[in-house]
Amino acid sequence: MTHRTLGRTAASTMEALDPPATVEPLQPAFTSRPGPVCRSGEGVFQIDTNGNQSRHSNLQIYYQNAGGMNSVIEDYLVASSDECFDIIALTETWLGDSTLSVQAFGANYDVFRTDRSSRNSLKATGGGVLVAIHRRLKAQLIDDTLGVCVEQVWVRIKLAGYALFLCVVYLPPDRTRDSTLIDSHTESLERISA
């Protein structure tokens, strides 16, 4: 699988298809708008699906450490209404039961999320992960009972001829050396890939 990356979120194993695109500055009125913005290089990358010429030949994926969505939930709704991205992955959403996913992504995305809880964290607030998949893609939540102590969500996305497995995971800074947390995530990865 070949990847084209923009911004600083590229993994070292990704291979560039083209030179990095120019990042266009946002209009001044939107400089503080959170969430996915079309043509923004920060956190944006494409997956070229091996030359497949179907409508899914290039998935537009956006990643962001949100640092809290509750106070700006309407801004995420406006940003996602552009529908520039097939997949939106967010960490540190800080969402809870009182916030509906449709408040941030409208009706055009299926949203799969794991909010922080006493099962996956020692803290009561913060954390949380989500992945929003545009409804033109077929996505399914993978129930991972092994990873209940980890703030992660696994999704299977059916594409032409194969499936893409996607995990969004948040490892809090105070738990990066927590062997139980790392082992649980690793076990869930092994279980999903088996």
Rank of each mutant, 00 (worst) to 15 (best):
V23W: 06
I182E: 09
G41M: 10
D174Q: 10
V168T: 09
L6K: 01
A79I: 02
Y109T: 00
V111P: 00
R119A: 10
N52S: 13
S184A: 15
A194E: 14
I182C: 12
L95K: 03
G43R: 01
A139Y: 01
V155K: 02
L171S: 11
V131D: 14
E92N: 09
T49L: 15
V78E: 05
A21S: 10
L164R: 10
S117M: 07
A107W: 03
P172G: 04
T2F: 05
I133V: 15
G51T: 04
R4F: 03
G127E: 05
A66S: 13
V72Q: 06
Y76W: 03
R55M: 13
S121K: 05
A194K: 14
Q152L: 11
T13W: 00
L6I: 00
A124E: 10
D48R: 06
E74M: 13
R113G: 12
V150R: 02
T125I: 10
D110P: 13
E15Q: 06
R39K: 09
I87F: 02
L141I: 11
R135N: 05
Q140G: 02
S193F: 14
G41I: 12
Q60T: 00
L171W: 03
R177H: 12
P172N: 02
T2S: 08
D18F: 03
A160F: 09
W154V: 12
G68Q: 02
D48F: 08
R135S: 04
I182W: 13
R156Q: 12
D82R: 04
A132R: 14
P20V: 15
L166Y: 01
H56M: 13
S71P: 04
G43A: 08
I61F: 00
K138T: 01
E15P: 04
M14C: 02
R191S: 15
D178R: 05
D178A: 06
L26R: 13
V131H: 06
Q152H: 15
T114V: 03
V150H: 02
L6R: 02
A124L: 14
C167N: 13
D97L: 08
R119F: 11
H56G: 04
D75M: 08
A160W: 07
D144M: 13
E83I: 00
S81C: 11
S184K: 05
G67D: 04
V153P: 05
S81R: 12
S81F: 11
I88N: 00
G67L: 13
S101E: 14
Q46D: 08
S54D: 07
K123W: 04
A29V: 09
R113H: 07
V78F: 08
N52W: 06
P20F: 10
